[in-house]
């Protein structure tokens, strides 16, 4: 039993660090690049994707003995599309402004290879507990990767960090100004960072840094 728990915990942490879906496995790149121009977008997208991967892993894992091998992809897509639509409704109902900004990238979670990959690799072979541990790990790992990019790009591009809703005390107007306001006033902000090329360049550098750290730690161990 203890062993079982241990492996679930490992499954969870693996999703965040060793198997990080974006930075290591290079899955789910599209939202990673497209919506990370602000911290708020990154957080909402991460939450939506986590919701979908958790629900899809749950359903797949519960039905794993009933699913015939050659219709499995169809069933995965059907499940994911359904929960993405629900996530879309939920976002429009509760964080309307950010949902409007994300636009088509919410429905595009359907074709995020990360989610279908988790159903195929983990959920169809394992019990509910393990699939859930995996889903949460992957979801949080994805959100974490989005956040890294969002934090860098918004900081350099606009000098602020925005949140999906106002946080009393810290960010009463929904954003905090990190750089001095003269940064953006005098046009010193790097607009390129919030434009498409900035996304590619930042992600390239981040992937390089991650690889460098990984090779260091492997060499040391």
């Amino acid at each position: 039993m203890a062993d079982e728990n241990g492996s679930n915990l490992k499954q969870f942490t693996d999703g965040i660090v060793n198997n990080n879906p974006v930075l290591v496995q290079l899955l789910g790149m599209c939202p990673m690049l497209a919506i990370t121009n602000s911290v708020a977008n990154a957080l909402v997208m991460g939450a939506a994707a986590t919701f979908v991967v958790v629900m899809s892993n749950t359903i797949t894992s519960l039905l794993r003995n009933l699913i015939k091998p050659h219709v499995r992809i169809l069933i995965f897509t059907l499940t994911i599309a359904t929960f993405v639509t629900i996530a879309d409704f939920l976002l429009k109902a509760f964080v309307y402004d950010v949902a409007m900004k994300l636009g088509p990238f919410i429905p595009l979670i359907i074709v995020n290879c990360m989610i279908i990959c988790r159903a195929e690799v983990v959920a169809i072979r394992n019990g509910l507990a393990r699939s859930l541990a995996d889903a949460f790990g992957i979801g949080i790992g994805f959100t974490f990767a989005l956040l890294i990019l969002g934090v860098i790009r918004e900081l350099l591009g606009a000098g602020t960090w925005t949140f999906p809703f106002p946080i009393p005390g810290i960010a009463p107007e929904g954003f905090i100004q990190i750089m001095p306001s003269s940064f953006a006033d005098n046009g010193h902000n790097w607009v390129i960072m919030v434009l498409p090329p900035g996304a590619f360049l930042t992600l390239g550098v981040v992937i390089g840094v991650v690889n460098w750290i990984r090779s260091k730690s492997e060499g040391g161990a």
Partner: peptide, 23 residues
């Protein structure tokens, strides 16, 4: 190419420059 950038890293950087060109 520097080792950590080989593969995906350098491709991203090239894509960034391409994207600049398309702008």
């Amino acid at each position: 190419v520097p080792k950590p950038l080989q593969g995906a890293g350098i491709t991203m950087l090239v894509a960034g420059i391409l994207s600049l060109a398309f702008m």
